[in-house]
Amino acid sequence: MKNIIVTQNLTKMYGDKAAVSSMDMHVKQGDIYGFIGRNGSGKSTTLKMLCGLAFPTQGNIRVFGQSLSQESVRKRIGVLIESPGLEGGRSAYENMYLKASLMGIVDPDKEIRELLTLTGLNPDNKKLVKRYSMGMKQRLGIAMALLGGPDLLILDEPINGLDPEGMSQLRSLLADLNQKKGVTILISSHILGELSKMATRYGIIKDGCLVKEISKEELSAECKDYLYLKTSDSKMAAVLLEEKLGIQNYEVRPEGEIRIYQKADPGQITAEMTSAGIPVYAIYGHQQDLEGYFLDLMGKESKTGSSKKGGRRHA
């Protein structure tokens, strides 16, 4: 699959502070690219640069193999960045009509009605947008991003404010667009559980740097199931695991926590620990999800970036 978005050394400075630093991002055609990071990590700034709302201080962006300054490129991108850009004193239909006329869509009535219905809004509703709930505004923002049938959708926190039904609808809609129409989607969200249900590839950003790009398959491989063990003395427990039980693939974490990544019998471990006088506070099987992986990665990065203390990992 060819790359739809490629950034090289993308950097955005605000004064002395780098909001985005030397980012090399690759979004492939047909991806649903989940862009994740903490608050203030530079997600929105990156997305703004990718849709031309902010200019990079350094580096370059290629979208569809062309520079973002080409009007032909912009026409193929649907955008929802942060809050939807809406005129509060107009109806949803009128907002859509304005965007359609901005894009030069001739006779957009049919498309507007379809998109509003698709996103769960009533095209005939005359209610002013300023009286809409946050979720309804978000739905309208998504409908506006879909106007003109874009080949690439850039959505910044589109799930914010949506009710569970709305989230599910959006997920189906994006999956449909991706699978049936081949739309590439770059989406950022804090709701990692929801994102993991649709993303096919992830980019993880921390402090303005793209820490990792990983496919769903690679993530599944990395998100191993593990046995969680909490004891009063993790050092002693680790020695016991290696010497008595022959367990090599484990990770010692702070606060007496150990993660065992190979097959092991919890009953046997508990028995050995108890007989060695090491109290076991908890032991259970755990399946790591995107959230866990993300938190782990963020934790590791923090440690790498700071004192490097903490658990060791045997592979």
Binding site: C51, L68, Q70, R74, G85, L86, E87
Partner: peptide, 12 residues
């Protein structure tokens, strides 16, 4: 209102 985002994301 943020409506400008619609304009500036479309027109380089």
């Amino acid at each position: 209102s943020g409506f400008g985002k619609n304009i500036f994301s479309y027109y380089p």
